[in-house]
Design a protein around this nucleic acid. Sequence first.
DNA 1: GCGATATGCGATATAGAATAACGTCACCCC
DNA 2: GGGGTGACGTTATTCTATATCGCATATCGC
Lengths: 172, 172
Amino acid sequence: MSGASVAAPREQAVEAALDRAASACAARGAQLTALRRQVLRLVLDAPHPVGAYALLDQLRAERPGAAPPTVYRALDFLQEQGLVHRVERLNAFVGCTGPEAHHHCGHGHDHPHQFLICASCGATAEICDDRVAAAVRDAARAAGFVPTRTTVEVEGRCAACVAAGQGGPSPA
Amino acid sequence: MSGASVAAPREQAVEAALDRAASACAARGAQLTALRRQVLRLVLDAPHPVGAYALLDQLRAERPGAAPPTVYRALDFLQEQGLVHRVERLNAFVGCTGPEAHHHCGHGHDHPHQFLICASCGATAEICDDRVAAAVRDAARAAGFVPTRTTVEVEGRCAACVAAGQGGPSPA
DNA sequence: GCGATATGCGATATAGAATAACGTCACCCC
DNA sequence: GGGGTGACGTTATTCTATATCGCATATCGC
């Protein structure tokens, strides 16, 4: 580690992501306002999925008048823009670290994605597996169902926790 | 339809399911008490996923002292027994109509399942697709992740609504 | 019979998640 | 300068879920 006094790598990455987000929004005619940017920053800063009220508490440090609708409206916007995802199992939100952010697999900003949620450490990884997406689509179609949005969330133990715990559970 | 005055087919089916559930619990050393059976009946009676507080309201008709923990504890038990599932997207519960109930595809009472949720009419179908389950498992493993439970929920339009609406949205 | 432990449930309180409804202000376009 | 739109403030309420304490009963070993 080389001196954290100026700007930690993570902070730089978040700033870069915020700038990319602003560009992406602008390109679609949407505005990443100061408030929305602030909320997005809070989500991206969090190491794990964050609840809306945790965001609200943090937001209030800078914006005393903030209320639930403040944060929910911002989150709705950010979800529409594909900048954050909601983790249904946790009633919480994560920054999108998938294709939208890094252009890994060529999907739009409403891309299919899946979450791997570690029950032990709380880490939540976003993956983008085409076989999963295809299998789900086919299964739905086979039932005469026309899918619009799909939620895939896997709970289990992440590689790090498996390595550390050698199988036993140690939920934080 | 032949006379609903004695016992509608649906009621009979629910009663049969309740008896099957009681047997299954007994076989595992768990007790399907009167309260739990009552809650399970309410879930099975509902045509669509039901919220915990809707169940609570109904439950109070027969059991005035019922409070949130009453219904949540019953639901936790029923979920452990694989008799009901939670639909994360809806914060609601459905009776298990999958392999556990009908022995369709040879899984235990912690079987993989997927939901197809119609945004138009609210109908929620449970399916049990092995390709989906396998794809999800493989994707998780590829990330070094050891899965324990998986949620797959597809939102869209069911066959009936697609046929009726010819494509346009008419969310009830 | 008697205490020990476990389970199921009643009852109260509180925390957490989400939305409804209404008002204001800025901006833009004509 | 009137009208529309979008973003946000503000207040209130609803819905979802859990924590905690306490009581009754059942079951077991002795």
